[in-house]
């Protein structure tokens, strides 16, 4: 069970959280005019990297905030977590 560092509550067990998949994919600007391709890309296409991954988590059983985590998908190491609006930290080497 992962230990996830909620930027508000600190490290908590994975069971308190809900996973939200890839972070920072953009909803197309002027989305009503977006092409089918751009819209489909936004709706369905997500990165699935082997290595460091920025992802969304919500502390459902705690403060109920959505936030971001940089996690390694092989080792499950978590480099950092940050709040919505924070500068995006660099991925570890």
């Amino acid at each position: 069970m992962l230990l996830i560092p909620c930027p508000y509550c600190g490290e908590r067990a994975e069971g308190e959280f809900r996973y939200g998949g890839e972070a920072h994919f953009r909803r197309p600007d002027n989305h009503l005019e977006a092409t089918d391709e751009a819209w489909a890309d936004y709706l369905f296409m997500r990165k699935n990297p082997k290595g460091w991954h920025r992802e969304r988590w919500m502390h459902l059983a705690g403060c109920r905030r959505w936030f971001y985590v940089v996690r390694h998908t092989i080792t499950h190491k978590i480099a950092t977590a940050y709040k919505v609006g924070d500068a995006h930290p660099d991925l570890p080497a």
């Binding site: 509550c9 705690g62 403060c63």
Partner: peptide, 10 residues
């Protein structure tokens, strides 16, 4: 104070 789970209850 803390919010968490006890068994399967928030």
């Amino acid at each position: 104070v803390a919010q968490s789970l006890i068994a399967r209850a928030q």
